[in-house]
Design a protein around this nucleic acid. Structure first.
Lengths: 202, 202
DNA sequence: TCAAATTTGGACCCGTCGGTCCATCCCTTA
DNA sequence: TAAGGGATGGACCGACGGGTCCAAATTTGA
């Protein structure tokens, strides 16, 4: 196990984070730390060496993991026809959203808004907020290029993302299985893109 | 305090439910039962007389309160121009969604998916599912009447509801204050309706 | 190979909270 | 006014889980 001098074991740290997501996904945040330790193949004490208390673990987990999940949304990709670009964005968005890990993160953060609002806030900024902003920029460019007519790109971005996601995120958060296949996701994203293009045609 | 013979005190029961929402809103579901009792001006024992255990209280609360909140969505209202009807629906939807009580309910249910999936399920059915179904029916009628062209009314309903809600629900659940005024809500609903009409024009 | 730093596991402390018990009280009804 | 059913509140129990402590084992850097 590679350990950095004077530092904390990196691999073990990852294992702890992974175990935490899994455990919380299965049993909720109120699951005992001991379980996370067991799952991570680590002693409880080690966790407390890395993170002072449970709240810190929650915080660290949210901070670290959001980025992994939302990263694909930031990759701009080749500039294609707006409809294709939108569809692609929709696909990525929906896929990311329905990730069990992201769901767990959200649930965890939501359950703790009262006790640690900053975590929830950070998750919002890194997630929905950032992705909408990226989309809005794209729509603005397209409008400037005369391929779309979005007088209010931010609002339009909200609209499009909303169409793609709609009640699906809530369903997922409430543990209702939707059973969406990749083909379904693709169809939804494409249809949303088509309709959006009609709504905002020049 | 009006009490029905041989029954349980109705007013006190309401008070308990009210207190539970408030307390959970402030401190999360893990807040102690004692606090709810205190807030309701009732003894802890009384709560346990009404509901056998905490889980039952959660369940009862979710079951009872959703209906109150989603009720306005079920009132069909006078049949107007589709654009107006959609805007009205959007307004009601957004307003209901941003209700602190509904937010609390959702958070509560989400935090407990692992331990009591039926509650979460019920909330989903009574909330998002039901409202979408109502909207879909409306869109179907309008399509039949030749005022709209929605080949897939259910999907279209998802799209419209999604446009209106978009990331706002997530924001709310994550405790991010949006500060939407009635005027804002109205504007969003109307704009969404307009765009939707363009997207699904005959 | 040695010393320093970490890890381990397992006992342990303690606060909290769900839930129970019970003697007393209040209200309603007859 | 007597009786009965629920309400009260406050003490109480037991489980659980966060967090600590510690001695022994292990790893790491030099």
């Amino acid at each position: 196990m590679a350990r950095v001098a004077g530092q904390i074991d990196v691999a073990k740290n990852e294992a702890i984070l992974d175990a935490a997501v899994d455990v919380w996904a299965e049993r909720g945040v109120q699951a005992p730390m001991e379980e996370i330790a067991r799952r991570a193949g680590v002693s409880k004490q080690t966790i407390y060496n890395h993170y002072g208390c449970k709240a810190d673990l929650v915080q660290a987990l949210c901070a670290r993991r959001v980025h992994e999940i939302v990263a694909p949304l930031e990759a701009p990709g080749a500039i294609e026809q707006p409809a294709q670009a939108l569809a692609a964005f929709g696909r990525v968005l929906l896929t990311a959203l329905l990730t069990p890990r992201y769901t767990t993160l959200l649930r965890t953060a939501m359950a703790n808004v009262a006790t640690m609002p900053e975590v929830a806030r950070a998750l919002y900024e890194a997630g929905p907020r950032a992705s909408r902003r990226g989309l809005a920029t794209f729509l603005e460019t397209e409008t400037a290029a005369g391929r779309l007519a979005c007088p209010d790109p931010v609002e339009a971005a909200e609209f499009f993302a909303g169409m793609v996601i709609s009640s699906r995120q809530t369903a997922y958060l409430l543990g209702v299985p939707l059973g969406l296949t990749d083909a379904d996701i693709d169809r939804i994203a494409r249809e949303a893109a088509t309709r959006f293009m009609r709504a905002y045609a020049v």
